[in-house]
Amino acid sequence: MLSDCAKEKIKKIYGNYSDLHSVSMTAMQIVQREIGHLTKEDLIEIAEMLDMKPIELDEIGGFYTMYNVERPVGKYHVQVCENLPCALVGAEHIITVIERHLKIKVGETTADKRYTLSRVQCLGSCGTAPMMQVNEEFYEDLTERNVIEILDGFE
């Protein structure tokens, strides 16, 4: 169920786009911010608002790693880029370090529901590889040491 607040926010940005379909990505982001993921019902409701088919939003959600469709995530969603520039400077190692530190595998959430670890595609910060995004913040030039500090630094 979309909150009234989310609906208001979506309606407010209609004017920023040339047609309703173009609102879809931002609308999905607005809704996802509320609980960290999108439910099936959310997609149906957004589709209804934007005069689209729910499957079209499902396609968007399935294509971009930034959307968590029917996939609840922890308070901190740790998204490590796995594409080539990051991979060349040790992204795989970073992932292993995080897995070991949080005691979860990629795709899992810690038992206390604080962390979820995901592999994602290029986040456009290749110059500072390896890098990750936690919720909506970038953390760059990761090393074995600072990545643990960063994760432990969250409240």
């Binding site: 099936k40 088919k53 729910p54």
Partner: peptide, 19 residues
């Protein structure tokens, strides 16, 4: 009708119905 879509990407892409 447009009730089918391509969900996921690359080798994981699946042509299917909504969820």
């Amino acid at each position: 009708r447009g009730v089918l879509g391509s969900v996921g990407r690359g080798a994981y892409q699946e042509e299917t119905s909504f969820r």
